[in-house]
Amino acid sequence: MTTISAHTRIGSINRTLQFLLLHGILLAYSVLTIYPIVLVLINSFKSRQAIFRNPYALPTPETFSTVGYDTVFNRAAFPSYFVNSLIVTVVTLLLIFIIGSMASFALSEYRFRGNTLLGLYLSIGIMIPIRLGTVSLLRMLVSLGLTNTLAGLILVYTAQGLPLTIFVASQFMRDVPRDLKDAARVDGASEYRIYWLILPLVRPALATILVFNMIPVWNDLWFPLIIAPAENVKTVTLGAQVFMGQFVNDYGAVLASLSLAMIPIIILYILFSRQLIRGLTSGAVKF
């Protein structure tokens, strides 16, 4: 009896130790990821002198200042950068969502000649980055009059996002039971109608896709820099980069611009994260 209870006691001490160690490591790493971001946020609400006097301190009534945000909103075209980024990201995601899910549906639903080959063709872009074609892409956009337009960016990002989207979504659509679709067909539903009925069933996959497409599009610097650098079409990422160059000593303004640039993406992530995890764990990212 005594040996058993001694055993369980050691066992439970071990478990407690394990529990503490495990959470200790996770907590320490979380501090490493969160603290720098918190530093940006708290200092964006402080006056310039206060930032350098003590960067670790929270803003107090004496040091609180929104001068950075004032600069961002009044002296730079930041609100317009914001709108540009939102338009580019939202329209790109919509296009990827509609076009990608349609193609995935066709690839997973119908047996036709060249199906496998087309699937392979469409997945080349998962591995070969679109950036490598930039020289030619820029020339084409120039000849189409699409440089310095949001449409140009949207088309490039849509092309960039489609391969992975189609790859993941078509695997998911394959898992939708046949009976369901056939029942709808018997009821006289058109193929378009059936596609529309399938969409809600693959929601987790689509959420995964949205998050994975949203982050690189919102944060991209390369294409805005090369194909849409004009003031009226600048995205937040490029705007913040240029802004940092101009206002390099105005830390308050730079910190404010950076704080603003990260908010939308974090909100979108929180909105989708539940579905993201479900999508990931149910095998959305099996190659």
Binding site: M102, A106, I124, I130, G133
Partner: peptide
């Protein structure tokens, strides 16, 4: 179903590459 994806992908990704 397939045309929009194939066209955008081919024109803006495969062709430039």
């Amino acid at each position: 179903f397939l045309a929009p994806a194939v066209i955008i992908y081919t024109v803006f990704m495969i062709y430039p590459l």
